[in-house]
Amino acid sequence: MNAIETINLKKSYNGNQIALSDTSFSIKQGEIFGFLGSNGAGKTTTVRLLNGILEPSGGNASVMGMDITKNQVEIHKLCGVMTETALMYENLSGIENLNFFGRLHGMSEAAIRERSFVLLEYLELTDAKNKKVKAYSTGMKRRLSIARALLHSPKVLFLDEPTSGLDPEAAMNVTKMIKQLSVEQGVTVFLCTHQLKYAEEICTLYGFIHKGRMLGMGTFDELLKQRNSKRYVEIRGESLPDIKSSELTHEGKIRITIQSDDDVTRILQDILSRGGKVYEARQVKWNLEDLYFSFQKGENL
């Protein structure tokens, strides 16, 4: 079953300012979908549309089979949302915030207490639970927002930069938790980020968005195929001769596209035979960053 499906979903403001144009994609249940794009690309707009708090200007979409324009309340029961534009009450303590949102989700006091205890413990906020949120650090506020999004055990989780501002240990815990939710409980995660390395570490499916337009969508391998990506060899050395179609990296290495392992041997022999010195040679495949920029530029690297 598709947890999220959009067909030509569109959003424009005042008729001409396009925030999202004709976007179609589907995400199966249990996937961790990395929605990647720079600030202002349309990520938050998409999250708001999928949660029914913005009205689409065209097209349609469903979350867990429910129409986003008709079943907002039901969708909110199944979704947990953590975005930078949906914050916690600063004059309430962490636990008071969770109590309040738990009540709005129709949870019993006992259920809120039990779930808050587990989440606060996991997110290392137990000691600060009675402090007012305004006294929290940025990382603590973000962790509390994650706790709120998970409080009612959602089936679909929308997370906007969940590890930004967290220390490495807390970021690792959050990442582990997201993976566990996806694998063990089949929670679908819609993760908005512009941290490509982080997305590569955690996501099973990717979508690239730029200026409101979906550039590409698929698994890593599918996206590599779409861009007809190539492998290349990176060489660090001295007195390196000119090699056809090589390029210089910002680290001062040369990068040459290859078709096979034999090409590496041939290139190295060529350099050595022409008096060049090789200190380091490494075969490199495209990573998510290469893919992202490839889609953004609309051409192969």
Binding site: I53, Q72, V73, H76, C79, A86, L87, M88, Y89, H105
Partner: peptide
Amino acid sequence: EHKTMESLFYTPIS
């Protein structure tokens, strides 16, 4: 102002 209204919109109340 404090961006808490949007948090309310994500809760299951009409």
